[in-house]
Design a protein around this nucleic acid. Structure first.
Lengths: 205, 205
DNA sequence: CTAAAAATACCTCATTTGAGCGATTGACTC
DNA sequence: GAGTCAATCGCTCAAATGAGGTATTTTTAG
């Protein structure tokens, strides 16, 4: 039995979602809310398995709500509800803590299927959004660094000092400094911290 | 017209995939290969729109091949072919440069649909894999830092010096030092570089 | 209300770092 | 054969950093 809660400000949509879930074997509509604020308070004691959350809510948005809800109840899966496939809003929701989303005009059978998948550890999403998520965690740019420089940057990121790096690479400390200066120039930075940041951000290491 | 190339060592699978694509309106099977090595050489001059690539290939694996192919031809979309939903291999492929994958026993209609979606900028994948991808780029752990410390860590990551941070926060340099010492302690690191690395890795900022 | 945590401030010292210079060798390209 | 780039080594110096302490004042939480 999958316990579901609904957070949606539109009365009609809320009702119809509730009815669909309530009348389906294996699903239970635990509670319905008009706002995140109300839901967060009421669900604290008895978190559901799945929350269907509208993205555009009055007061706290669904995105903010998802972040807070996920923080309080890490085991609750959040499915965002959206009218259109607005890339950015959906993407932000997924970053905030949601693990799936549905278009509001999704037919009941697919809706129930998606909730099942979500609860079983999946993340229902269109292939378009999936691509977006995929690209966001892959290196974008081509590395301008040579192999040796990349190697040194890696050691730099691990927090080693010049001396330590020099020892590990069997070269003099001076050489390491020169390399690091070149790295800084190529990455257009002028401190270790910035270099490390850029390196991890652009997945250069 | 979507130009497709196939890299698959099993003769029967290669043939049947080729036939399906060849006989479908809007698709063209450009070439078939038994290995990445052969494909990389032959495709250099005339890259296809989509490559169907077996994960388990003799010689260079599909994962390695995907990385090289994507590097040479960034505009070619790579669809991995796999027998079973082996999480790790599929996930590694997506990291390497593939933007979608298919099970080998996918029926022709779905296969063609997936290729279409891939070419249109989507990333066909099961909701299970999607969850995996999603989790990989979201912060895992709870931040142990206070709001102020997080703020300072953010400035640290941008490469600012103690003085600069102190000025921006309207506190003394001594205060900044104290905070940073606490941050280092909490993150279990002992240098700027490590702190920045940990911060970006765990998405603390 | 009381205790813990966070934010603030100060001191000193050895070490590390970034910036500014230059130079040689070998590999690869055009 | 000239030119570029990577990799190596060298020097100096002021400034920034990390490590070692201690202490006061708010806030927050129990």
């Amino acid at each position: 039995m999958i316990k579901v809660a609904i957070i949606e400000d539109d009365h009609d949509i809320r009702q119809s979602l509730g009815l669909i879930i309530h009348h389906t074997e294996g699903f239970e509509c635990q509670q319905c809310f008009e706002s995140c604020e109300a839901a967060l308070e009421a669900l604290a004691a008895n978190p559901p398995h799945v929350v269907l959350m509208d993205i555009n809510l009055p007061g706290m948005t669904g995105i903010e709500g998802a972040a807070i809800l996920k923080k309080k109840h890490p085991h609750t899966d959040i499915m965002m509800l959206t009218i259109r496939e607005d890339d950015q809003a959906v993407f932000d929701s997924l970053c905030a803590g949601a693990t799936g989303y549905l278009l509001k005009n999704t037919p009941p059978a697919q809706l129930l299927q998606a909730i099942k998948e979500l609860h079983a550890g999946g993340s229902p999403m269109s292939s378009h959004i999936a691509r977006r998520v995929l690209l966001s965690f892959r290196p974008q740019a081509e590395s301008p660094l040579s192999a040796r420089e990349t190697e040194i940057l890696g050691l730099l990121c691990e927090g080693h000092h010049y001396k330590r790096i020099a020892e590990q690479l069997f070269v003099s400390g001076h050489t390491v400094r020169s390399h690091i200066k070149n790295i800084y120039y190529k990455l257009q930075v002028n401190s270790r911290a910035e270099a490390v940041r850029k390196a991890t951000k652009d997945k250069l290491i």
